[in-house]
Design a protein around this nucleic acid. Structure first.
Length: 277
DNA sequence: ATGCCAGGTAACACCTGA
Protein backbone atom coordinates (compact mmCIF):
# COMPACT_ATOMS: atom_id res chain seq x y z
CA UNK A 1 0.00 0.00 0.00
CA UNK A 2 1.32 3.40 -0.91
CA UNK A 3 1.51 5.68 2.10
CA UNK A 4 2.96 9.00 3.07
CA UNK A 5 6.60 9.96 3.12
CA UNK A 6 7.03 9.49 6.84
CA UNK A 7 5.78 5.96 7.13
CA UNK A 8 9.07 4.35 6.30
CA UNK A 9 9.82 1.41 8.61
CA UNK A 10 13.23 -0.15 8.65
CA UNK A 11 13.05 -3.77 7.58
CA UNK A 12 13.02 -6.26 10.42
CA UNK A 13 16.38 -7.78 11.23
CA UNK A 14 17.18 -10.25 8.50
CA UNK A 15 16.61 -13.70 9.98
CA UNK A 16 19.73 -15.81 9.85
CA UNK A 17 19.38 -17.16 6.37
CA UNK A 18 19.19 -20.93 6.12
CA UNK A 19 22.71 -22.23 5.87
CA UNK A 20 23.74 -25.13 3.69
CA UNK A 21 26.40 -27.16 5.48
CA UNK A 22 28.61 -30.08 4.50
CA UNK A 23 28.78 -32.97 6.95
CA UNK A 24 31.37 -35.71 6.48
CA UNK A 25 32.45 -38.95 8.16
CA UNK A 26 35.96 -40.37 7.92
CA UNK A 27 37.70 -43.27 9.59
CA UNK A 28 41.26 -41.88 9.62
CA UNK A 29 43.09 -44.93 11.06
CA UNK A 30 45.16 -42.92 13.58
CA UNK A 31 44.70 -39.15 13.71
CA UNK A 32 48.37 -38.62 14.52
CA UNK A 33 49.64 -40.67 11.59
CA UNK A 34 47.04 -39.03 9.34
CA UNK A 35 47.27 -35.40 10.48
CA UNK A 36 48.87 -33.96 7.30
CA UNK A 37 46.28 -35.77 5.15
CA UNK A 38 43.43 -34.63 7.38
CA UNK A 39 44.56 -30.98 7.43
CA UNK A 40 44.99 -30.98 3.64
CA UNK A 41 41.53 -32.44 3.17
CA UNK A 42 39.86 -30.01 5.61
CA UNK A 43 41.33 -27.07 3.69
CA UNK A 44 40.37 -28.53 0.34
CA UNK A 45 36.90 -29.97 1.03
CA UNK A 46 35.82 -27.29 3.55
CA UNK A 47 33.41 -29.48 5.51
CA UNK A 48 31.42 -27.73 8.27
CA UNK A 49 31.07 -30.84 10.44
CA UNK A 50 33.36 -33.87 10.47
CA UNK A 51 32.81 -37.17 12.27
CA UNK A 52 36.10 -38.98 12.81
CA UNK A 53 36.77 -42.58 13.82
CA UNK A 54 39.79 -44.67 14.82
CA UNK A 55 41.76 -41.86 16.43
CA UNK A 56 44.00 -44.45 18.17
CA UNK A 57 45.05 -41.98 20.86
CA UNK A 58 43.98 -40.56 24.19
CA UNK A 59 42.23 -37.18 24.28
CA UNK A 60 45.38 -35.40 25.47
CA UNK A 61 47.30 -36.63 22.39
CA UNK A 62 44.69 -35.47 19.87
CA UNK A 63 46.19 -32.71 17.63
CA UNK A 64 43.56 -30.23 18.77
CA UNK A 65 45.45 -26.99 18.14
CA UNK A 66 46.27 -27.77 14.52
CA UNK A 67 42.62 -28.47 13.76
CA UNK A 68 41.28 -25.54 15.79
CA UNK A 69 43.58 -23.32 13.74
CA UNK A 70 41.45 -24.16 10.70
CA UNK A 71 38.35 -22.83 12.45
CA UNK A 72 36.92 -25.97 14.01
CA UNK A 73 35.70 -26.70 17.49
CA UNK A 74 36.67 -30.17 18.64
CA UNK A 75 35.14 -32.81 20.88
CA UNK A 76 36.96 -36.12 21.33
CA UNK A 77 36.41 -39.45 23.01
CA UNK A 78 39.69 -41.26 22.73
CA UNK A 79 41.52 -44.15 24.31
CA UNK A 80 45.01 -45.60 24.10
CA UNK A 81 45.95 -47.54 20.95
CA UNK A 82 42.47 -48.52 19.77
CA UNK A 83 39.17 -46.98 18.67
CA UNK A 84 38.52 -43.32 19.48
CA UNK A 85 35.98 -40.93 17.90
CA UNK A 86 35.68 -37.17 17.48
CA UNK A 87 33.42 -34.41 16.17
CA UNK A 88 34.78 -31.29 14.46
CA UNK A 89 32.44 -28.37 13.74
CA UNK A 90 32.60 -24.81 12.47
CA UNK A 91 30.05 -23.96 15.14
CA UNK A 92 29.74 -24.43 18.85
CA UNK A 93 29.56 -28.02 20.07
CA UNK A 94 26.81 -28.29 22.66
CA UNK A 95 25.67 -31.07 25.00
CA UNK A 96 28.56 -33.38 24.16
CA UNK A 97 27.75 -36.97 25.16
CA UNK A 98 30.63 -39.41 24.73
CA UNK A 99 28.84 -42.65 25.56
CA UNK A 100 26.33 -44.98 24.01
CA UNK A 101 23.93 -45.86 26.83
CA UNK A 102 23.49 -49.43 27.95
CA UNK A 103 27.09 -50.54 28.34
CA UNK A 104 28.08 -49.87 31.92
CA UNK A 105 31.31 -51.91 31.69
CA UNK A 106 32.09 -50.95 28.07
CA UNK A 107 35.47 -49.20 27.98
CA UNK A 108 35.74 -48.99 24.20
CA UNK A 109 35.65 -45.42 22.82
CA UNK A 110 33.31 -45.93 19.90
CA UNK A 111 30.66 -43.23 20.30
CA UNK A 112 30.28 -39.48 20.71
CA UNK A 113 27.39 -37.13 19.97
CA UNK A 114 26.90 -33.38 20.13
CA UNK A 115 24.64 -30.61 18.87
CA UNK A 116 26.08 -28.39 16.12
CA UNK A 117 24.79 -25.18 14.55
CA UNK A 118 22.38 -24.95 17.47
CA UNK A 119 19.95 -27.51 16.07
CA UNK A 120 21.58 -30.52 14.41
CA UNK A 121 22.45 -33.49 16.62
CA UNK A 122 25.36 -35.44 15.12
CA UNK A 123 26.89 -38.73 16.20
CA UNK A 124 30.27 -40.25 15.33
CA UNK A 125 30.07 -44.05 15.44
CA UNK A 126 32.83 -46.64 15.25
CA UNK A 127 30.85 -49.85 15.25
CA UNK A 128 32.75 -52.97 16.35
CA UNK A 129 34.29 -55.05 13.60
CA UNK A 130 33.17 -58.35 15.13
CA UNK A 131 35.74 -60.71 13.65
CA UNK A 132 36.31 -63.54 13.99
CA UNK A 133 32.92 -65.24 14.04
CA UNK A 134 31.97 -67.58 16.86
CA UNK A 135 33.92 -65.48 19.38
CA UNK A 136 32.96 -62.90 21.98
CA UNK A 137 33.97 -60.24 19.43
CA UNK A 138 31.02 -61.09 17.22
CA UNK A 139 28.57 -61.26 20.11
CA UNK A 140 29.93 -57.88 21.28
CA UNK A 141 29.28 -56.43 17.83
CA UNK A 142 25.68 -57.64 17.78
CA UNK A 143 25.03 -56.48 21.34
CA UNK A 144 26.52 -53.07 20.49
CA UNK A 145 24.22 -52.82 17.48
CA UNK A 146 21.25 -53.66 19.70
CA UNK A 147 22.27 -50.86 22.09
CA UNK A 148 22.65 -48.49 19.12
CA UNK A 149 19.20 -49.42 17.81
CA UNK A 150 17.57 -48.74 21.17
CA UNK A 151 19.39 -45.41 21.52
CA UNK A 152 18.56 -44.20 18.02
CA UNK A 153 14.92 -45.24 18.43
CA UNK A 154 14.70 -43.10 21.58
CA UNK A 155 16.57 -40.23 19.91
CA UNK A 156 14.29 -40.08 16.89
CA UNK A 157 11.20 -39.63 19.04
CA UNK A 158 11.56 -35.84 19.20
CA UNK A 159 11.52 -35.46 15.42
CA UNK A 160 14.59 -33.19 15.37
CA UNK A 161 17.44 -33.06 12.86
CA UNK A 162 19.92 -35.86 13.50
CA UNK A 163 22.77 -37.46 11.60
CA UNK A 164 24.26 -40.77 12.70
CA UNK A 165 27.51 -41.16 10.83
CA UNK A 166 30.55 -43.34 10.94
CA UNK A 167 32.19 -46.64 10.22
CA UNK A 168 29.35 -49.13 10.68
CA UNK A 169 31.47 -52.16 9.79
CA UNK A 170 28.56 -53.70 7.90
CA UNK A 171 28.40 -54.51 4.19
CA UNK A 172 24.67 -54.00 3.60
CA UNK A 173 24.38 -55.80 0.27
CA UNK A 174 26.42 -58.21 -1.84
CA UNK A 175 26.86 -55.42 -4.41
CA UNK A 176 28.55 -53.30 -1.72
CA UNK A 177 31.68 -55.50 -1.83
CA UNK A 178 34.00 -56.43 -4.69
CA UNK A 179 33.49 -60.17 -4.07
CA UNK A 180 30.92 -61.32 -1.52
CA UNK A 181 32.37 -64.85 -1.58
CA UNK A 182 35.60 -63.50 -0.10
CA UNK A 183 33.59 -62.20 2.89
CA UNK A 184 31.25 -65.13 3.37
CA UNK A 185 32.73 -65.90 6.79
CA UNK A 186 33.34 -62.28 7.74
CA UNK A 187 31.42 -60.49 10.49
CA UNK A 188 30.70 -57.54 8.17
CA UNK A 189 28.58 -59.69 5.88
CA UNK A 190 26.70 -61.93 8.29
CA UNK A 191 22.89 -61.97 8.16
CA UNK A 192 22.82 -60.97 11.85
CA UNK A 193 24.89 -57.84 11.13
CA UNK A 194 22.92 -56.96 8.04
CA UNK A 195 19.55 -57.43 9.71
CA UNK A 196 20.55 -55.05 12.49
CA UNK A 197 21.76 -52.46 10.00
CA UNK A 198 18.49 -52.72 8.06
CA UNK A 199 16.60 -52.34 11.33
CA UNK A 200 18.32 -48.97 11.85
CA UNK A 201 17.17 -47.82 8.42
CA UNK A 202 13.66 -49.09 9.16
CA UNK A 203 13.48 -46.66 12.05
CA UNK A 204 13.12 -44.05 9.33
CA UNK A 205 16.73 -43.10 8.62
CA UNK A 206 17.90 -42.09 5.16
CA UNK A 207 21.29 -43.29 3.87
CA UNK A 208 22.54 -39.98 2.44
CA UNK A 209 24.82 -41.47 -0.19
CA UNK A 210 22.20 -43.93 -1.42
CA UNK A 211 19.67 -41.12 -1.76
CA UNK A 212 21.76 -39.87 -4.69
CA UNK A 213 23.63 -42.90 -5.98
CA UNK A 214 22.11 -46.32 -6.60
CA UNK A 215 25.07 -47.76 -8.52
CA UNK A 216 26.52 -51.04 -7.25
CA UNK A 217 30.18 -51.32 -6.24
CA UNK A 218 30.58 -47.85 -4.72
CA UNK A 219 33.10 -48.14 -1.92
CA UNK A 220 34.35 -46.19 1.10
CA UNK A 221 37.12 -48.62 2.20
CA UNK A 222 39.93 -50.41 0.40
CA UNK A 223 42.32 -52.74 2.25
CA UNK A 224 45.98 -51.79 2.31
CA UNK A 225 46.85 -55.31 1.20
CA UNK A 226 46.92 -57.11 -2.11
CA UNK A 227 46.62 -53.92 -4.19
CA UNK A 228 42.97 -53.54 -3.23
CA UNK A 229 42.89 -49.80 -4.04
CA UNK A 230 44.51 -50.23 -7.45
CA UNK A 231 42.09 -53.06 -8.31
CA UNK A 232 39.09 -51.24 -6.79
CA UNK A 233 38.53 -54.15 -4.42
CA UNK A 234 36.60 -52.18 -1.81
CA UNK A 235 33.76 -52.25 0.67
CA UNK A 236 30.94 -49.79 1.39
CA UNK A 237 30.84 -49.63 5.19
CA UNK A 238 30.82 -45.90 6.05
CA UNK A 239 27.47 -44.17 6.19
CA UNK A 240 25.61 -40.97 7.07
CA UNK A 241 22.12 -41.88 8.29
CA UNK A 242 19.71 -38.94 8.49
CA UNK A 243 16.54 -38.46 10.49
CA UNK A 244 13.50 -37.45 8.47
CA UNK A 245 13.85 -33.78 9.39
CA UNK A 246 17.51 -33.78 8.34
CA UNK A 247 16.77 -35.76 5.17
CA UNK A 248 14.11 -33.22 4.23
CA UNK A 249 16.94 -30.72 3.70
CA UNK A 250 19.38 -33.11 2.01
CA UNK A 251 20.63 -31.63 -1.27
CA UNK A 252 23.67 -33.74 -2.17
CA UNK A 253 25.94 -36.54 -0.99
CA UNK A 254 28.94 -38.43 -2.20
CA UNK A 255 32.11 -40.35 -1.51
CA UNK A 256 35.33 -38.36 -1.83
CA UNK A 257 37.85 -40.86 -3.13
CA UNK A 258 40.63 -38.27 -3.31
CA UNK A 259 42.17 -38.90 0.12
CA UNK A 260 42.43 -42.67 -0.48
CA UNK A 261 44.78 -42.10 -3.42
CA UNK A 262 47.24 -39.91 -1.48
CA UNK A 263 50.52 -40.89 0.13
CA UNK A 264 50.10 -42.29 3.65
CA UNK A 265 46.35 -42.65 3.11
CA UNK A 266 43.83 -44.06 5.55
CA UNK A 267 42.21 -47.26 4.28
CA UNK A 268 38.86 -45.42 4.47
CA UNK A 269 37.86 -42.31 2.51
CA UNK A 270 35.37 -39.55 3.49
CA UNK A 271 31.64 -39.86 2.88
CA UNK A 272 29.80 -36.50 2.89
CA UNK A 273 26.41 -34.88 2.50
CA UNK A 274 24.88 -31.40 2.34
CA UNK A 275 21.99 -30.38 4.55
CA UNK A 276 20.48 -27.04 5.53
CA UNK A 277 20.34 -25.86 9.12
C1' DA B 1 44.61 -72.12 4.67
C1' DT B 2 47.62 -68.02 5.30
C1' DG B 3 49.83 -63.68 4.43
C1' DC B 4 49.59 -59.65 2.13
C1' DC B 5 49.71 -53.71 4.64
C1' DA B 6 49.57 -50.34 8.26
C1' DG B 7 49.52 -48.37 13.02
C1' DG B 8 50.49 -48.68 17.95
C1' DT B 9 52.97 -50.47 21.68
C1' DA B 10 56.83 -52.00 23.24
C1' DA B 11 60.89 -53.69 22.41
C1' DC B 12 63.13 -55.37 17.88
C1' DA B 13 57.48 -59.41 18.00
C1' DC B 14 52.75 -59.14 18.62
C1' DC B 15 47.95 -57.39 18.47
C1' DT B 16 44.19 -55.34 15.80
C1' DG B 17 42.00 -54.12 11.83
C1' DA B 18 38.11 -55.43 7.72
Amino acid sequence: MVTGFNNFQPPPPVPPSPRKIKVATWNVNSIRARLPNVLDWLKEAQPDVVLLQELKCVDEAFPRLEIEELGYNVATHGQKTYNGVAILAKSALEDVEPRLPGGDDDEQARYIEATVFGKLRVTSIYLPNGNPLRTEKFTYKLAWMDRLYAHIKRGLADGEMRIYGGDFNVIPKDSDVFDPRAFRDDALLQPESRARFRALLHLGLTDAFRAFNALPHQYSYWDYQAGAWQKDHGLLIDFLLLSAKAADTLTNAGIDKGPRGKEKASDHTPVWCEVTV
